[in-house]
Amino acid sequence: MQIDILFIFTALIEIFKALPLTMIITLVPLMIGFLIGIGITLIRIRKVKGLYRLANFYVSFIRGTPALMHIMLIYLGLPLLIDKLAGTFQWAFQSTSIPILLFVLMALSLTAGAYMSEIIRAGILAVDQGQLEAAESIGMTNFQAMRRIVFPQAIAVALPNLCNIFIGFLHTSSIAFIVSQKELTGAANIVASNNLKFLEAYIAAALIYWGLTIISEKVTALLEKRATVYNRGGVA
């Protein structure tokens, strides 16, 4: 077996340049997904008529299908819809002018929304019902109580899961290479085929992902410590 150790370093540097795109494909969907998740959670906890079933189906469908499907369905389906609308309303605008990245971000936001809603819901359900009642008993509205009392506690509970979903999406972002995004995996693929050193390139990519994961685990451990100290209040 011939492994070009030196080339792994070269590849490492080359691939590392794609980190910003990977971060965009990881973080943007997570942030939008977080908002979607809050909306979905409220709909599901309050059992909003009509929307409730739709929200349940959305979560179940997204969680029941691979992320690749989400990307493909949006990437292939949305342009059809846009072009149709453009045709009807005579916009001077074509779906081909939209960068693929935007579709990827939209699709993964939808993916993240479903997973986020499960995490947020679990966090909220873990907060003692008494907290909400106590807040309402001092005259807060339900919304104030949720936002000021329940939500901060729920986030503390959800922290480990939020870390997990970050790592999960860091890895999920790698499928964007299938629709030719030049994020870490895409870059590794290019480095690999340009130099015909596949193994070395993918080892380099693996090291980058691995390093990023370990860093995020360390950061979470730190955050968790702070969150629990805060939770323990005066005892600390």
Partner: peptide
């Protein structure tokens, strides 16, 4: 736990 399944597959 630290690497995407896609990268593992290629490796």
């Amino acid at each position: 736990r630290g690497t995407p399944i896609l990268i593992q597959l290629f490796l």
